[in-house]
Each structure stands twice: as C-alpha cells, then as structure tokens.
C-alpha cells in the first residue's frame, strides 16, 4: 500500500517538476516548487512507513517550516525587491 502511495507521489512530483520547468510566469514556478516541497514531505512520511521507521515524520515538520520561509522570501522579494524591507506599506516606485 505504501509502495503505491510512493509511486503516486513520484508521479505527482514529476508533474510538479514539469510545471516548474515549463511555467510561463514566475508564480507558476514558485507554486510548483512549493508543491515539490510538499511532495518531499509526503515522500519522507511515506518512505518512513515503507521502511518501518516512522520517526522521519519529525523531519517533515522542519521541511514544512523551510517551505514557508522560502515561499515568503521569494514573495517578499517579488513584491518589494528587497528582503530587508519592513513590509506593511506599498512599494514607493
């Protein structure tokens, strides 16, 4: 059962990579990479159960946090053009 799940995740991962490579706009790519991060978490969990060691789940939490930080950093850069911007207001130019 877990092997089937792993196979399904790999297929979805392939589709996400295709979108990241083809994506016409930056947002397509970013959404795809966000999905790839999510699939990495799923793969981690499924593979942990597949090999009988579900302790891997803890690392999945770390991956989720990294995913959020990466996405916010990219979006902030895209909005303000500067990672050190304090945010909260419209860009001046």
């Amino acid at each position: 059962m877990f092997a089937t799940a792993a196979f399904a995740i790999l297929v979805a991962l392939g589709l996400a990579v295709a979108r990241a490579l083809l994506g016409p706009t930056v947002f397509d790519r970013m959404l795809a990479v966000n999905s790839i991060g999510n699939f990495a978490i799923l793969m981690l969990a499924v593979f942990g159960f597949l090999t009988g060691r579900p302790e891997f789940l803890d690392i999945g939490i770390l991956y989720a946090l990294l995913n959020v930080i990466g996405t916010i950093a990219v979006l902030k850069f895209f909005r303000f053009g500067d990672l050190a911007h304090s945010g909260g207001e419209e860009p001046s130019s």
């Binding site: 991962l13 990241a20 930056v26 990479v33 991060g37 990495a40 793969m43 593979f47 891997f56 991956y63």
Partner: peptide
C-alpha cells in the same frame, strides 16, 4: 536565462536531492 526562475528551480533541486538522501538513509 531568467535568474529569478533559476533560483526557484535550484530550491526545487535541493528539496529533491534531500529526498534522495533520505532514501539513501542519510537523514
């Protein structure tokens, strides 16, 4: 040629190579 997209793709690369390392049992 768009470096912004390249940065995003390298982030995806890191996530996938991390999964490879997990499968290789180097958590």
């Amino acid at each position: 040629r768009n470096l912004f997209a390249v940065v995003i793709l390298s982030s995806a690369y890191s996530f996938i190579i991390a999964t490879v390392l997990i499968v290789l049992d180097a958590v």
